[in-house]
């Protein structure tokens, strides 16, 4: 399968207590990619760097196969193509929603106010008299919806979203998945979405490619269908627990037996055990990989 990349990067950034070390990051074009990791894994830092909000890093980034991060700071067209939403202040708290539209027109040449108003209505942001509501009076959910409305009202090719599902209620999360699918459909194959989450279960149905991060590094990455063949969910009997512990990435065991995730190619180590196999969910794979990573880190 021929894959082009929306973003390719090689990044490094160190703080006193933390280090972001990503020798090769690849976000495929035309798909929805999930950046999965616990809080503190480095997701926000990575997205900030990719969105151009943070400039203190070493390394380089290539956008859409043709723009470098240097060009991103020099040419207006690069940041025009990127829509970012995130958990920080984002807006000045004293702004009213009407001002957000005015400022957007100055910031982005493809911003359309009619589109923005339509999205505000569709997503039910603020209700009646919304235009006069201040950012500081909005709930986290409404602010998230406002950011989403803002990026959808422009012509973009990449959406970078930092924990978009977190402040949203379950109904709105599904709506977000729908929005992502519509976004990808609109320009078949030319648009990409890269979002982060610490709870992939909510966004699993829309995720095509997963990047699992732990301790500032990428622990695993791949198309979801490929990952579901690389890993397998195993259930077995209590007597085989010692053998299972050596093979499985993550295992929960009790007196009735064990279950956990392991690499498919290691299954032969469990030959002779009475086990049942299942295709793991992305959630199960992520948890297993992250925990394995944490254990490796501890052993150092």
């Amino acid at each position: 399968m021929e894959v082009n990349y929306a973003i390719e990067a090689s990044l490094h950034k160190s703080y006193s207590k933390f280090e972001l070390n990503i020798p090769r990051l690849m976000v495929p074009k035309g798909f929805a990619t999930a950046l999965i990791g616990e809080n503190g894994a480095g997701k926000t830092t990575l997205l900030n760097i990719l969105a151009g909000i943070r400039l203190d890093y070493q390394g380089k980034i290539t956008y859409l196969g043709r723009y470098s991060d240097r060009q991103r700071e020099e040419l207006s067209e690069v940041k025009e193509k990127i829509g970012y939403t995130g958990p920080g202040g984002y807006y000045l708290p004293q702004w009213k929603i009407a001002q957000v539209a005015q400022i957007s027109e100055l910031l982005f040449s493809t911003f359309r106010k009619e589109c923005f108003d339509m999205w505000c209505r569709q997503l039910a942001i603020g209700g009646d008299g919304a235009a006069n509501k201040r950012i500081s009076s909005l709930s986290d959910g409404n602010r998230e919806k406002l950011m989403i409305a803002g990026v959808l009202s422009r012509d973009t090719e990449i959406l970078l979203m930092d924990e978009p599902a977190s402040p949203l209620d379950p109904l709105m999360r599904e709506r977000l998945c729908e929005i992502i699918r519509d976004y990808l459909l609109e320009d078949e194959g030319e648009r990409s979405v890269f979002f982060s989450t610490h709870n992939i279960a909510d966004m699993e149905d829309v995720t095509d490619y997963a990047i699992i991060m732990a301790n500032g590094q990428i622990a695993e990455a791949g198309f979801v269908e490929d990952l579901k063949e690389k890993y397998v969910y195993v259930r077995g009997e209590a007597e085989d627990i010692p053998q299972a512990k050596k093979t499985l990435f993550r295992i929960s065991s009790g007196k009735y037996g064990f279950e956990g995730v392991c690499l498919a190619k290691k299954l032969e180590q469990l030959a002779g055990c009475d086990i049942s196999l299942e295709t793991p969910s992305l959630s199960q794979i992520s948890v297993a990989v992250m925990e394995h990573s944490r254990n490796m880190e501890r052993q150092g």
Partner: peptide, 25 residues
């Protein structure tokens, strides 16, 4: 108008920073 504009932390005004015209505005 401009309250909070000189804050040094990265967690504010990201919207302006996502555009090349942000600081100019």
């Amino acid at each position: 108008l401009f309250s909070g504009i000189l804050k040094k932390e990265t967690g504010s005004m990201e919207y302006l920073k996502t555009s090349i015209y942000g600081t100019d505005i």
